[in-house]
Amino acid sequence: MSVVVRTIARIIVPMILAFGAYVIMHGHLTPGGGFQGGAVIASAIALLLVVFGSGRLAGHKNLLSLLEDLGAIAFVALAFLGIGCTFFRNVLAGSGGLFGMPVPPGPNPGFLNTGGTLPLMNWAVGLKVAAGLGSVVLLLGLFGGGDDR
């Protein structure tokens, strides 16, 4: 693509990433969460693919699939965390530690340090969805060879 699109993409990709991180981080407070933020970050990968061509991203294919596996493992591990009670038990909620702040019932401005395992699960799923969808787009773009810029 032309120089204009390339420059704007350079500027906008960090913004997309920051916004995706915001969406995932605030998944338990505002609309959004792991899936949505992951999709946002994956679309940053798609943007890089279309603007800079597939050649520049081809080396990261294995890294992406590894990240996806790590996200999935982290998700299952978080689910196994509660196996003292039951699988998927939210053991961190209200315990006072990391993400364990009790929430005032009713409408409130939202506090980041709440939610128990939910923010951590959001991050695991966000990593997984971003890497997964990104590698789907990348694989389809890379198929058949040729650097199609």
């Binding site: 699109v5 913004m15 969406v23 609309p31 946002v40 679309s43 943007l47 279309v50």
Partner: peptide
């Protein structure tokens, strides 16, 4: 207030779709 986030996502991501079509 929190609904405006949807518009931001939309503004960012429709750009990607447009670029694909243009490409």
């Amino acid at each position: 207030v929190i609904y405006v986030d949807v518009a931001i996502v939309y503004a960012l991501l429709s750009f990607v779709g447009t670029l694909y079509i243009a490409r």
